[in-house]
């Protein structure tokens, strides 16, 4: 009950408060770790393909969806859908046209529906691994090479792979912020 005890408690509780402030920030990597573990998030780097056994017994329809957020680009998939066997290496090509009058750098962010499909969607090569800088009026064809893990649950028959291009600072050399 002495002054010293009070002070000790003050320091300890203060330390807890500071630690919790740090914990707030720690929630960021924690969130991404959980999302990665559940396959809910896809970082901008190639996935390791471990099993390339093609499962010819079933076909999964992959829809390619494209979005552009507040920038003067036109972004389309050459093929809007592909019917593929899990395990087969597939390439899809997208076209981007910079219809604005200046050089613009964009970063594509992938997203999947249903969300859990992300875990089984392995991208070997993707334009989303890098920023893309397009000169005014430039048109560019961009591939994504992927494999759907044969472990994909059977009730998933349709997967949407959706890309959104955001305008970012810098040039095409940079890696993604993720």
């Amino acid at each position: 009950m002495s002054e010293r005890e009070n002070r000790r408690l003050l320091v300890r509780l203060g330390a807890v408060a500071v630690a919790m402030f740090g914990f707030g920030y720690a929630l960021v990597p924690l969130y991404y770790t959980v999302c990665d573990a559940l396959g809910l998030r896809d970082l901008g780097r190639p996935d390791a393909v471990v099993n390339t056994q093609v499962d010819a017994t079933r076909t999964v329809r992959v829809q390619f969806d494209t979005n552009v957020r507040s920038m003067g680009w036109q972004f389309t998939a050459l093929e809007r859908t592909a019917d593929i066997h899990p395990g087969a290496v597939t390439q899809a090509v997208f076209r981007v046209v910079n219809s604005s009058g200046r050089a613009v750098t964009g970063q594509a962010i992938p997203s999947y529906a249903p969300r859990l499909a992300g875990e089984y969607f392995r991208k070997v090569e993707c334009f989303c691994f890098q920023r893309q800088t397009l000169a005014p009026g430039e048109t560019r064809l961009m591939p994504v090479v992927f494999v759907i893990d044969p472990g994909l649950p059977h009730e998933v028959a349709t997967i949407t792979l959706s890309y959104t291009f955001f305008e970012v600072e810098g040039t095409g050399d940079g890696q993604t912020g993720a």
Binding site: R69, S70, G72, W73, S99, S100, G101, R102
Partner: peptide, 22 residues
């Protein structure tokens, strides 16, 4: 087509500016 920032509120990416209507 390209939007413009008007100088009143400049909070990118979208706030307070004329967005692109491309």
């Amino acid at each position: 087509l390209n939007g413009q920032t008007n100088g009143v509120l400049q909070h990118p990416p979208a706030g307070g500016k004329m967005p692109s209507w491309a």
